[in-house]
Design a protein around this nucleic acid. Structure first.
Length: 488
RNA sequence: GGUCAGUUGGCCGAGUGGCUAGGCUCUGGUCUGCAAAACCAGCUACGGCGGUUCGAAUCCGCCACUGACCUCCA
């Protein structure tokens, strides 16, 4: 029924038709968070982008295994050799066990993801739970001759690998450029070349996150976990690997190299990368310190924010831009999303008010086809949303009987909005459930009293009720025969 | 310095060689006891300079600017 699903493959730098390796199964791997701090707006982007992908693949009927890792071993701080483990550093700072930090921030991440209505992945493996597998992969790479050991550490031999394969095929790097451009960093004397990267790193005495191995007491290198866990759960060949654009190089490039070196062939068919969220034109990121955490958005507690933003506002904000474009954050842009989302959700609710007629003067099928065409075109959610807004006008004119629709088309329309708004875009109408049924009944009761007062032209009473409710945060929307309300 | 992106109306953001998304703001209107909300309508932009073309914001060249990656980063 649907047309071809097209996705942009970073590997080919082209849009390609999506054809799973083993239909109806689809393997999807996405780089998850390093849990050493609260998730910020930037973390929401890949989560939501690939949630959209996950949801749409399922909508199309695929059986998807979605693997999103948690990096809890920690990447190396500063540089691959002399830095200390990020998690370990934080742990020492706060006098906590590393795993305590990991647990704390994992829980908070999960809470944020739930608030954003991001579906749980099928498997969420942790790097620390796959040390043995990582060591096994190092063995394979050593056996294949693409790695070397030096003083208890093991490094990937990029130059050797480049003779047989193409290191740089994903990111477009050229080894010669890397040679001349790679910064000379202190303490790199163990490596044959500065662009070699660690597969296993011997731990220093003060380094508390460590595991025994034949090479040394140490810890795995920072690209290895993804190669290992994707292979373990999705096989040596799988369909889609996603992540942020900032991981393209060196992380994903090195993943390809590791998997190829160990298995003899490439593992990923489609590479997908989401772009960055910017703030004042600059990437929002940890290193620049210009990030706003998701909790700060949800509570409004940040100097750049003058109000709280609901998780669904943040989700909608992100979906209103294409995932491969940068998205510039500003309070104004978020307010715009908040209002737009409200308008969309209100319209969806009012579909139930439409009364079917004998004929349709609106074209539901055309709308439906446009929606599928948009999502099929590399997950073009902004275009999809623009069509949904066109449909909002249609819905509103149907509610006001300016257009008519048959029962069959009406059912179709309702399904269309349910599918796209809730199932695929993953939006949620938080207002309809706020406070539970009792509150709804109480507010309705009060508004009924006000309506009676109004009918009796007792405006003093009716306005008092309205004003007091408003000061409690209710928005009162008068209709001819009563009032609607919502909690702001 | 190298590699790669981008520069769209007040703001955020799509997009295509001609038919000139969408949201928000703003303006006008409808509705209304007033207000709010809601709804309707209007607002016609594509960094600069050349070129290709009947026609370019969309293709090509040059320039300018911004950003990403090259070091942990989603």
């Amino acid at each position: 029924m649907q047309n071809d699903f097209i996705i942009y493959n970073t590997l080919s730098r082209k849009k390609e038709k999506f054809e799973p390796i083993n239909p109806p199964f689809v393997g999807l791997y996405v780089c998850g968070p390093t849990v050493y701090g609260d998730a910020h707006l930037g973390h929401a982007r890949p989560a939501i982008t690939f949630d959209l992908l996950f949801r749409y693949l399922q909508h199309m009927g695929y059986k998807v295994r979605y693997v999103r890792n948690i990096t809890d071993v920690g990447h190396l701080e500063n540089d691959a050799d002399e830095g200390e483990d990020k998690i370990a550093k934080k742990a020492r700072l706060e006098q906590l066990e590393p795993m305590e930090i990991v647990q704390y921030y994992s829980d908070r991440y999960h809470k944020n993801m739930e608030e954003l209505n991001v579906l749980k992945p099928s498997i969420e493996p942790r790097a620390s739970g796959h040390i043995i597998e990582q060591q096994q992969m190092i063995d394979k790479i050593l056996e294949a001759g693409y790695a070397y050991e030096k003083d208890g550490s093991v490094y990937f031999d990029v130059e050797k690998y480049s003779k047989d394969y193409n290191y740089g095929k994903l990111s477009g790097r050229v080894l010669d450029d890397l040679k001349s451009n790679t910064r000379e960093l202190a303490g790199q004397d163990e490596k044959r070349n500065p662009f070699d990267f660690a597969l296993w790193k011997k731990a220093k005495p003060e380094h508390i996150m460590r595991w025994p191995s034949v090479w040394s007491d140490g810890f795995p290198g920072w690209h290895l976990e993804c190669s290992v866990m994707s292979t373990k759960y999705l096989g040596e060949k799988f369909d889609i690997h996603g992540g942020g654009m900032d991981l393209l190089f060196p992380h994903h490039e090195s993943e390809i190299a590791q998997s190829t070196a160990a298995n003899g062939s490439e593992s990923v068919k489609y590479w997908m990368h989401n772009n960055m969220i910017t703030i004042k034109g600059q990437k929002m990121g940890k290193s620049l310190g210009n990030f706003i955490t998701l909790d700060e958005f949800f509570t409004g507690k940040h100097e750049l924010l003058d109000q709280a933003y609901a998780p669904m506002t943040v989700r909608f904000f992100i979906l209103q831009a294409h995932y491969r474009s940068t998205l510039d954050f500003s309070p104004e842009a978020l307010v715009a999303s908040e209002k737009g989302l409200q308008r969309l959700l209100t319209a969806v609710k009012s579909i139930d008010k439409i009364k079917p007629q004998k004929e349709s003067t609106v074209n539901v099928n055309e709308l439906k086809e446009k929606c599928y065409a948009a999502i099929n075109d590399d997950l073009n959610s902004p275009i999809l949303i623009s069509h949904l807004f066109d449909g909002v006008k249609m819905i509103n004119s149907l509610v006001e009987n300016k257009q008519s629709i048959t029962a069959k088309d009406l059912e179709e329309l309702k399904q269309l909005y349910n599918s796209f708004v809730f199932d695929i875009l993953g939006l949620r109408d938080d207002n309809s459930s706020i406070g539970g049924n009792k509150l709804n009944e109480v507010v309705d009761l009060i508004l009924n009293i006000r309506y009676n007062a109004k009918s009796n032209k007792d405006f003093a009473t009716s306005d008092k009720i309205r004003d007091e409710l408003q000061s409690l945060g209710f928005v009162i929307k008068d209709r001819k025969d009563g009032s609607d309300w919502e909690l702001k």
